[in-house]
């Protein structure tokens, strides 16, 4: 069963379509990377899931319950960390978590138990000073703790690592990775390396629509075979001629060359490329040093999807 199901969801700000007839399903237990460039509609979608933004059309279900704008009924299933979480600066982390626990109707024993589990998990155990003096990274970590206080089925994290330094990012990703299997995580970001590190499924939003979605490995394989690295031994002039010959082939999309002897070829048909290389090289008296199918990086997929859209 899908923990999150979005059907035909739209959100218009006057003429601007922030989210445009979006359909999305996120399965139980997955860490779902919600990708898209700035302004693609990621935060708007997440706000609609949490009931803090009103959809223009469509419907959202979390654990089978329909999300209604302005209602807090579905929030029992959701733990939410916005992109810039703001807390009551006069409280200590424990006081804040206690307030959150009380809002879910927990008694003192349950709150103590959850604080005892969560504060060490996010590295804030024993810190008694006020949240107002916290760094951005500490606030993000407390944000995760408050989102987890009621053991939600769905954890929504909106660009949690965007404004953190490398150390803070690493710590946060480690915490997020430790949650694998215990709940479903939706993790919005435009930092692709973070997604590659911890996500197993992704959805790529472009222009308010889902341009790509599915299993990360499947997507990698789908986009594999489109790129090859060719290294040759020979004179620069002849290498340039070889590059020219390749660029005339109908199945070649793009050739990037760091040096004349090293080419990165993006093409539609890798088999045809493989078959044509040797005759071309032989004709120019060049030797092939390396021919390798490049492992596609998420960034390449991202750029390709955005280009297509």
């Amino acid at each position: 069963m899908a923990v999150l199901e979005i059907n035909n969801l739209s959100k218009y700000y006057r003429e601007i379509k922030a989210v445009d007839e979006l359909d999305l399903k996120v399965g139980k237990g997955s860490i779902f990377g919600f990708l898209g460039r700035n302004g693609a509609g990621k935060t708007t979608t997440l706000r609609m899931i949490t009931g803090t933004a009103k959809p223009t059309g469509g419907e959202i279900f979390v654990c089978g319950d329909r999300v209604r704008f302005g209602s807090c009924a579905v929030n029992r299933h959701i733990g939410y960390l916005p992109d810039v979480p703001e807390f009551y600066g006069f409280m200590s982390p424990r006081e804040y978590l206690t307030l959150c626990g009380r809002l879910y109707g927990f008694d003192k024993a349950k709150i103590d138990q959850r604080c005892g589990e969560l504060l060490p998990l996010v590295g804030l155990d024993g810190i008694k000073r006020h949240i107002g003096s916290f760094s951005r990274g500490m606030k993000q970590r407390l944000g995760i703790a408050q989102a987890l206080i009621h053991e939600p089925e769905l954890l929504i994290l909106d660009e949690p690592t965007s404004a953190l330094d490398p150390m803070g990012r690493r710590e946060l990703l480690k915490i997020m990775a430790s949650l694998r299997g215990s709940l479903t995580v939706i993790f919005s970001t435009h930092i692709l390396s973070d997604v590659e590190r911890i996500c197993d499924t992704i959805g790529m939003l472009e222009g308010g629509r889902l341009a790509l979605s599915g299993n990360l490995e499947g997507i990698r394989q789908k986009y594999a075979g489109h790129k090859a690295i060719i290294e040759i031994n020979g004179e620069t002039q002849k290498a340039d001629e070889f590059k020219k010959l390749l660029s005339e082939k109908p199945y070649v999309n793009k050739i990037e060359s760091e040096t004349p002897q090293r080419l990165v070829v993006t093409c539609k048909d890798l088999k045809a490329l493989g078959a044509d290389i040797c005759p071309c090289l032989a004709g120019l008296s060049l030797a092939l040093a390396r021919f390798e199918q490049a492992e596609p990086q998420l960034e390449d997929v991202f750029m390709e999807v955005i280009k297509d859209e």
Binding site: G51, S71, N75, L103
Partner: peptide, 15 residues
Amino acid sequence: TRGTATLMLTKRLSH
């Protein structure tokens, strides 16, 4: 405006 309401209202606290 500060954003503190968001975390409270995305819990089981009604408007």
